[in-house]
């Protein structure tokens, strides 16, 4: 039997709390606060406390879904990205770039957020970008 704790940063907001993910025989079994971490000091909010639950949640989406005839149908990544790109293009052509907006996320890295900002301003051509952790 194997049990250990792996220190990691909370994937939710920008505060940067750390906690341990508890691994038992290769399985994620829980979250444990890290008392000696300088940011979170062993304290977590409800999102951190439940950060292990979405990993194995049966409700988690594992494949892209495209709505066809009012129903979500499984699709490949190529199909999904093509669909998004086509809709973006059409909206931009018909209504102008300011008809588009982008919401960035705290669950991705700084670098990814930077790339998203560039994509919004340089590719889509709008300043409409916001972020859930812009508190």
């Amino acid at each position: 039997m194997n049990y250990e704790n792996v220190l990691t940063t909370c994937p939710y907001c920008g505060a940067g709390c750390n906690f341990y993910l508890q691994i038992m025989d290769g399985e994620l079994v829980g979250v444990l606060p890290c008392k000696d971490h300088p940011v979170s000091q062993g304290k977590l909010c409800i999102k951190g406390w439940t950060a292990n639950e979405f990993v194995t949640s049966p409700e988690r989406l594992t494949k892209p879904l495209i709505k066809r005839d009012g129903k979500f149908v499984e699709a490949s990544w190529d199909e999904a990205l093509d669909a998004v790109a086509a809709k973006f293009k059409a909206t931009r052509e018909n209504h102008g770039p300011d008809a588009l907006a982008v919401l960035a996320s705290a669950k991705i890295t700084n670098e990814e957020n930077y790339a998203l900002m560039k994509f919004t301003r340089a590719v889509l051509g709008t300043n409409n970008i916001d972020h859930c952790a812009r508190l």
């Binding site: 049990y3 220190l7 444990l32």
Partner: peptide
Amino acid sequence: DGHTAPYLFTRAEDLDGLTVGTKV
């Protein structure tokens, strides 16, 4: 790495990492 967490020791040679006396 300067942080203390519960661990299940199954090999005697790993016990160098064992610690006590913290609030964990």
